[in-house]
Design a binder for these strands. Structure first.
Lengths: 212, 212
DNA sequence: GATGAATGTAATCAGTGATTACACAAAGGA
DNA sequence: TCCTTTGTGTAATCACTGATTACATTCATC
């Protein structure tokens, strides 16, 4: 296993850490033209290197995209945590709302990256400990918050905590994906996107909160 | 504009309606290997025809996939309507549950087709009147049912009908896509998929129903 | 300075969507 | 019956893709 330092040092051989340059080029290209338009050759060209070179650093196009996904997943969880710490976790329901807010805001600003980390055919999700762990971390936080809400009598009667974890995720994922997949138009959403997302989140929170 | 009859008749020139044979081959191939693995050449080969032939009937690969999507969308709305007529619409809340049930059951049994009709990069959704109309039909039914539920006092207080239409769709779409995208595993869903979907749907319905 | 691993190159492979010029079959009018 | 027109399919080809190979280069280290 290479440490981050030793890899950076060794990568400076010919090109000067190609690995990171390739990653940056891939991210830039994806942001410009979308994931579908990404090609390893183009990434190589932009990095000023031969078409075969990237394969020394990433065993396949999927591996390259997985690395992009790791980067993106880091940014997503950071955004969620930032929104949480802004809100605080005194109130578990408000903390849950903050997670949703952070998640949706990030998806809204980073549609292509969201698409990549959500996909399981573009990337090798389960082969990346980092992806699995960061995803799991958020899930655990949600489980804890919902359990606490339950103990404090903040959940509407009849709601099974385990079901709510899954359903909350499904709801927020559905809103995000409807945006990513371009379904807002068909569902007659003429208001600003951010506003619609906020209303949807408010409605969901209202529906689970015993005190509303 | 060609009518269906005349096209069928004329298509029998060399091959005997290639258009439909290509469509069937494409569907079969997609069901076997997934959308990603679909190639026009393979479709042509399976139909016993040269690689360029399909382009006489579908102007591009996207056009071919759009035709597949039209077929699939027809099946989805049929499944939803079937589930609705099984339940009846005496109770608007139960009718909404039936829509969700039909939608999820179909997505569960037809993951790849669901993926295609949900995508806006694989197909030309907005160029297909049929896709747009069938999607709109379901939306209108939901709008009506929710309006009726509102009038009959079946909606929990504080729920804005317009927001609920969107949120219901987002929720059901989220559940379906979590399945399609392979997120069930990560969210620790060890129970049978169909059971989880049912629980999620029940929870959502319970949350909107004033009488529960 | 020689050794050996890490890294990049050039050439090449099989496969892709798409376009073109061409061949062929059938329908319909003269 | 010819002969033109239209609809279909073919063959060849284009530019492009991800991936692999044999080879060359460069560096760290002994």
């Amino acid at each position: 296993m290479m440490t981050s330092e030793s890899r950076t040092a060794r990568a400076a051989y010919h090109h000067g850490n190609l690995t990171e340059v390739l990653l940056a080029a891939a991210i830039a290209l994806i942001e410009e033209k979308g994931v579908e338009a990404l090609s390893v050759r183009e990434v190589a060209k932009r990095s000023g290197v031969s078409p075969g070179a990237p394969f020394r650093h990433f065993s396949s196009k999927t591996a390259l995209l997985t690395a992009v996904a790791e980067e993106a997943m880091g940014r997503l969880t950071a955004a969620v945590r930032a929104e949480m710490s802004r809100t605080g976790d005194a109130d578990p329901i408000e903390a849950l709302r903050a997670i949703g807010r952070g998640y949706l805001a990030w998806a809204l600003s980073n549609p292509t990256h969201f698409q990549i980390i959500s996909s399981r055919s573009l990337i090798d999700f389960h082969d990346s400990p980092r992806l699995v762990e960061e995803n799991e971390a958020i899930r655990v936080i949600m489980v804890d918050l919902i359990a606490r809400a339950q103990r404090e009598g903040r959940l509407r009667p009849g709601i099974v905590p385990g079901d709510l974890v899954f359903s909350s995720r499904a709801f927020i994922y559905g809103v995000a994906r409807m945006w990513i997949d371009g379904h807002f138009e068909e569902w007659r959403v003429e208001r600003p996107v951010a506003e619609v997302m906020e209303s949807a989140l408010d409605l969901f929170i209202k529906m689970i909160d015993a005190q509303s």
